[in-house]
Amino acid sequence: MTDDQGFWDTLGALIPLGLAGAFSWLPVTGLVVLLLAGSGMTRVWAFVAGRVFGLALITVAFVAGARALPAPRSTPAMEGPLVAGAEVTAGLALVVVGVVAWLRRHRARERDAPAWQRRLAEASVPAVFLTSVVVDLQPKGLVLGLASGVVVRAGSMPVPESVLAVVLYLAVAASSVLLPLVAAYAAPERTSRWLRATQDWLVVHGSVLTAVVAAAVGVVLVVDGLARF
């Protein structure tokens, strides 16, 4: 099944989107806050589960919507303009997200921690789960969901291959919360020191990272979409 060229082309386009999702400072910051708070791993697991659920919900919704688009013609050079247009639109939206994040980078550094971060460690487990899901519903997350749906649709793959590609994309996008969780179990003391350094780094550079990654992936999508016309 995975010998099909369309699968590997689609996966090659999804991996950068997954990395853009992984390099999102809001969910990483939330996880770091919970791990450093020492309020129990139940809340940490709830936050990670909410992150994965939110990513899956957004991605599956957009993939299902994109698959409803008219099928592209048999020749790759004549793929449907709806797919190309949607990819260009998603790319431009990501560029806008990146520009806005860049313009707000100084404001993000100077303001106090958002209320949801301050209350997260003391929130109930369901509230932590819902907070993590809501964090996924930020503009960048929605645009990445749209872009992933368009990429999967453009691949014109059978359903099993589409499911596999989406699962791999979700694994990459969620890796920024899954890997620290594994590290916290494997080496708690060393991970704690690393998390404190990460928290300080995110305060200074988190918004810049979001801006650069979102804009870069957006440009790639625009170029790829234009090539499909």
Rank of each mutant, 00 (worst) to 15 (best):
R107T: 05
R109M: 10
E110T: 14
R111P: 07
R111D: 00
A113D: 07
A113I: 09
A115H: 04
A115R: 11
W116A: 13
W116N: 02
W116V: 12
Q117R: 10
R118E: 08
R118T: 12
R119L: 10
E122N: 09
A123I: 00
V125R: 08
P126Y: 02
A127K: 12
A127C: 01
F129V: 03
F129I: 09
F129M: 03
L130M: 13
T131A: 00
T131D: 03
S132V: 02
V133Y: 03
V134H: 04
D136R: 06
D136M: 15
L137C: 13
L137I: 13
Q138S: 14
Q138C: 08
Q138M: 09
K140Q: 09
K140W: 01
G141Y: 10
L142F: 11
V143Q: 08
L144S: 07
G145M: 03
L146Q: 01
L146F: 15
A147R: 04
A147Y: 05
S148T: 15
S148I: 13
G149I: 06
G149W: 05
V150K: 06
V151S: 04
V152Q: 12
V152Y: 02
V152H: 11
R153W: 00
G155Q: 00
G155Y: 01
G155A: 08
S156Q: 06
S156R: 03
S156T: 02
M157I: 07
P158E: 14
P160S: 08
V163T: 12
V163Q: 07
L164F: 08
L164N: 06
L164A: 05
A165T: 03
A165V: 13
A165F: 03
V166Y: 05
V166H: 12
V167K: 09
L168I: 14
L168G: 01
Y169N: 07
Y169D: 10
Y169A: 12
L170V: 02
A171W: 04
V172P: 04
V172N: 06
A173I: 08
A173W: 06
A173Y: 02
A173G: 10
A173R: 09
S175K: 00
L178V: 15
L178K: 05
P180H: 05
P180G: 04
P180E: 02
L181Y: 10
A183V: 08
A183E: 01
A184D: 08
Y185D: 09
A186Y: 12
A187R: 04
E189K: 09
E189H: 09
R190A: 15
R190Y: 04
T191E: 13
S192N: 05
R193N: 10
W194T: 09
W194A: 14
A197S: 14
A197D: 13
T198P: 03
W201F: 15
L202N: 01
G206C: 10
L209I: 15
T210M: 14
T210H: 13
A211I: 10
A211S: 14
V212H: 05
V212Q: 08
V213H: 01
V213I: 11
A214Q: 07
A214T: 02
A215G: 12
A216P: 00
A216K: 07
A216L: 13
